[in-house]
């Protein structure tokens, strides 16, 4: 019951957040310089042409008026029409969302696997050179941001040893007809593992670039809390029962040490999703982030709004999921 009440409170807070984000973005992109209509018209268009299009897109009205019109549409599921692409924003944005979700989730999986493995190995070999080496590696991983890792990876595995694709989402030469935009998922479910492998080869490097800094954060935090947990009495007691060091770490220490890491991973995952904007651009990956940059360049106001709202929605959903997982994993919270 307590949990239910907390969730309702959270949902209300989420709604307020989204409205706030919508207002701020709406105003900001209208007060910064740059006219979307002027950008889409060929040079030599008359003032009358501009005027006519301004009216068509409702840009001649005052900002509060524009907002009310836009908000009225949103409530009916209409996010307006993209100025540069001339398609409904909701269609465009939802079409790109799967690409970004697949990339982010893959990056998260890589980060958790890599960071978790580093933390567990460092704990198993604590006080030895192995732990030192892992610490140094983690420090390096953290001191370089994701998009620079992207460049490094392009140079290494795109140019020097071309093991992976560095551009796009899937090889067109495969001629595979997708029925959804969840390419990775769809090819897997339809058992087309050749296509699946091709998609992974496209996604792996951008995902890895996004994952490296997060892996380092996970590794450091998890190692720290594992180390603290390893001294606790119940861990020592388990040791006297005859368990190996590895099972002590994974069975006794890990479930308790993982909680603080989990909260942080939630927050950091939203940063990672933010990182997709530049990394997608870098790898010409057709996701939301790439589209966002185009939208900004073209001053495509409705599209920018749609993308930002969607990002805000993703962030709040991620936080909600983390909270619920935390409650589910912690028996003390569950009964409180």
């Amino acid at each position: 019951m307590q949990i239910l009440r907390r969730m309702i409170a959270r949902l209300a807070a989420t709604a307020v957040t989204l409205v706030g984000v919508a207002v701020i973005v709406f105003v900001v992109i209208r007060v910064v310089p740059g006219n979307p209509i002027a950008m889409m018209l060929p040079p030599g268009a008359t003032d009358a042409d501009i005027q006519r299009l301004q009216e068509l897109y409702g840009l001649d009205k005052s900002i509060p008026e524009q907002f009310l019109i836009w908000a009225g549409g949103v409530l009916q599921g209409d996010f307006g029409t993209s100025i540069s692409l001339r398609q409904p924003v909701s269609e465009l944005v939802l079409g790109r969302l799967p690409a970004t979700l697949e990339l982010s989730v893959m990056a998260l999986v890589i980060a958790v696997a890599l960071g978790g493995a580093m933390a567990l190995t460092a704990t198993l070999y604590r006080g030895t050179r192995v732990e030192g080496a892992i610490d140094v590696t983690g420090g390096m991983a953290l001191s370089v941001p994701d998009f620079l890792w992207g460049l490094v990876l392009i140079l290494l595995f795109g140019v020097l040893w071309p093991l992976f694709h560095i551009s796009g989402r899937v090889s067109p030469s495969l001629g595979f007809e997708f029925q959804s935009n969840f390419y990775l998922w769809e090819s897997f479910v339809r058992l087309r593992f050749d296509v699946w492998a091709d998609i992974v080869a496209h996604m792996f490097m951008p995902a890895l670039a996004l994952a490296i800094p997060l892996a380092a954060i996970i590794s450091q935090l998890l190692k720290q809390s594992l180390k603290e947990t390893m001294h606790l009495d119940y861990v020592t007691l388990a040791r006297t029962k005859g368990y190996s060091e590895t099972s002590i770490i994974t069975r006794e220490a890990l479930p308790n040490a993982i909680l603080p890491t989990l909260t942080l991973v939630g927050v950091q995952f939203t940063f990672l999703i933010g990182g997709t904007v530049i990394v997608e651009r870098l790898f010409s990956y057709e996701g939301l982030g790439n589209m966002a940059i185009d939208a900004v360049i073209n001053r495509d106001l409705p599209l920018i709004q749609g993308i930002v709202i969607l990002f805000a929605l993703i962030f709040t959903v991620v936080n909600l999921v983390v909270d619920m997982t935390y409650a589910a994993l912690n028996p003390r919270l569950r009964h409180a």
Binding site: Y234, A238, R239, T240, K241, G242, Y243, N256, P331, R332
Partner: peptide
């Protein structure tokens, strides 16, 4: 080390000092 652990686990047991910290809270 492995054999040592198993001998201890099979033949010796510990009653710890502080029952509040000697049980795993998440199990």
């Amino acid at each position: 080390p492995r054999a040592r652990r198993q001998r201890i686990g099979a033949k010796v047991a510990l009653i710890p000092q502080d029952p509040l910290t000697a049980l795993n809270p998440s199990r």
